[in-house]
């Protein structure tokens, strides 16, 4: 039950964000400059926090931490090199799964 109420909460907030401009900017009003700037600068800061979040188990140490850090670095390099989301995710995840079993 808790699972579904949480999913619906997330869905409600996401929909509200998408609908927000239709409620507040229905007239001719434009966005304040600081908000517009935040819209351009915030996403990459948030994504960096999320990378840390998805690698949080690293603080426990051990071979899984090593595997995670190596695979993360490899994913970044692979993506910088080929710019293929598909290749980067398959390559990075494949390497991580292999390292978990080998280290």
């Amino acid at each position: 039950m808790r699972t579904y109420t949480m999913i619906l909460l997330a869905a409600g907030i996401t929909f509200s964000l998408r609908a927000l401009p239709f409620v507040i900017f229905s007239g001719q009003r434009t966005m304040p400059a600081w908000l517009e700037r935040l819209g351009q600068t915030l996403p990459s800061a948030i994504m960096a926090v999320l990378v840390v979040y998805s690698l949080q188990d690293t603080v426990d140490g051990g071979s899984a931490a090593t595997a995670g850090l190596i695979a993360a670095l490899a994913t970044a390099l692979l993506h910088k090199w080929r710019h293929s989301t598909f290749l980067s995710i398959v390559g990075g995840t494949g390497l991580y799964m292999a390292l978990l079993r080998l280290l």
């Binding site: 994504m47 990378v51 998805s54 690698l55 995670g68 993506h79 990075g92």
Partner: peptide, 10 residues
């Protein structure tokens, strides 16, 4: 790890 990889590519 595909979540980590997705975030890194973005």
């Amino acid at each position: 790890f595909c979540m980590t990889a997705l975030f890194i590519t973005i």
